[in-house]
Design a protein around this nucleic acid. Sequence first.
DNA 1: ACAATCGGAAACCATTTGGTTACGATGATT
DNA 2: AATCATCGTAACCAAATGGTTTCCGATTGT
Lengths: 113, 113
Amino acid sequence: MIGNRMVSVKRKRDIIFRAIADPTRRRILALLRTRHQTVGEIASNFAMSRPAVSKHLRLLRSAHLVVSRRQGTTSRCSLNARPLRAVNDWLRDYEIFWTESLESLKSYVEKNR
Amino acid sequence: MIGNRMVSVKRKRDIIFRAIADPTRRRILALLRTRHQTVGEIASNFAMSRPAVSKHLRLLRSAHLVVSRRQGTTSRCSLNARPLRAVNDWLRDYEIFWTESLESLKSYVEKNR
DNA sequence: ACAATCGGAAACCATTTGGTTACGATGATT
DNA sequence: AATCATCGTAACCAAATGGTTTCCGATTGT
């Protein structure tokens, strides 16, 4: 039912927030912004071992932030940023709390110039 | 120097992303969006113990997402959403990846109607 | 002065996280 | 066919996380 869907949406959002919480995973996303890369290429950018990067990739894939297609022995990883819209939507509820301070500052400047 | 500042900015961002990663902490932020509340009031919304909520609040305070002023025996907690601008700024680098798909869909519709 | 309330800190515990090394499956190369 | 490269998974480990109960300090009210 709808209830189940709602829970699932919330769970998905939790997974996305967890996925982007780690700085290594955010670096991976940034890397894939320029071009798709294989797992080995991604791992070469980090001091940690390849399986460690592989684990991070698994988490990113579970959040659907990274999609990968096997191509021969390699695996082409590419960015899928659409799930980040959930984060964007979440932020919208808080945007007013920083824009309003800008607005009040602006009106202050307007009045006192 | 500038290098140190950069590191500190990155660390701050890490702390913010960690802070909002937990669903309980996001619920706390949502609660404080309506009005400032005491620690006890916040805790009453959760099934967990008050010290558990207190720990979450400590993390949120360390990210400067919650500020609290002691008032008598109680502690007034209020939302400070400004640090979330860092998340917003981070998202801007990915926005194109979901808007471009909307744009391409729009141009497709334009061409084929 | 004393009791009660509020909230933070400490000590403790189970689970999760983030890393390692070792191994195995699969596809390419020779 | 045999070997090599790539990548995922398993087993393991230390540290962090998220929760508990207990206790303590500060403030308020009687």
